[in-house]
């Protein structure tokens, strides 16, 4: 018991600081790399501005166009479910809000625990579905790399350990809670160096896309 308590304290203390530092510096470097590369001046006469269409695409790309939805409903729906599930649990579970409050001073109301528990279960199932899809769909199999599987495993581990900790299915409790925190920290550390970066850069990418098309008079 005392060993697991020490482990928990380590994940909450030194390891947390290490993870946050690597995450923050790594992400800053990554975004600086993008922004500093910049774009060449565009001499072609624009049909419209870039900012508004860019901002619009940042939002609209969240929803698939009807044709794509029809051609890849499973991919789209499962992707949606687990992203939303993950966000709900991350942002609306009471202990998570408490953590955010201790770090930033900001807080908001939580969802009742049974709902969080249900959402977590759905997220786990959806994540499993994405794994099966990745391993079976010819396109996904062809383009997947080791990184895709590592990232999947880490994200899955974060949700799974959280769920196990919530139901106290692993004893002693500090061990599973510590594992949950550690998994989240590994995710933070990996974030700037893997495709997890898309959490931030996808909005930059969408802006560039929307701006380039918007300039030519097409809302992308």
């Amino acid at each position: 018991m005392s060993g697991s308590m020490e482990f928990l304290l380590w994940t909450k203390g030194p390891m947390f600081n290490i993870a946050i530092t690597i995450f923050a510096i790594g992400l800053l470097v990554r975004i600086a790399e993008i922004v500093m590369l910049g774009r060449k001046k565009n001499f072609a006469e624009a049909r419209a501005g870039e900012w508004l269409p860019g901002l619009r695409t940042m939002l609209t790309r969240t929803v698939a166009d009807p044709g794509t939805f029809q051609r890849a409903p499973f991919n789209v729906v499962v992707g949606w479910i687990w992203h939303i599930g993950f966000l709900i649990v991350l942002l609306l579970f009471l202990p998570h809000i408490a953590l955010i409050e201790s770090l930033t001073g900001l807080s908001w109301p939580a969802l009742p625990n049974p709902i969080i528990s249900l959402v977590t279960a759905v997220t786990l199932v959806a994540l499993l579905a994405t794994l099966v899809h990745r391993m079976t769909h010819p396109v996904k199999r062809r383009i997947s790399t080791v990184e895709d599987y590592i990232v999947w495993a880490v994200v899955f581990a974060v949700v799974l350990t959280g769920w196990l900790a919530y139901y106290r299915l692993v004893h002693p409790y500090p061990l599973i809670l510590g594992m949950h925190i550690l998994a989240a920290e590994i995710m933070l550390i990996l974030l700037p160096f893997t495709k997890l970066t898309h959490i931030f850069t996808a909005f930059i990418a969408r802006w560039y896309n929307g701006a380039a098309f918007g300039r030519k008079g097409v809302q992308s």
Partner: peptide, 8 residues
Amino acid sequence: SSCVHCGI
């Protein structure tokens, strides 16, 4: 930086 290998 953003590609998630979704295959869409």
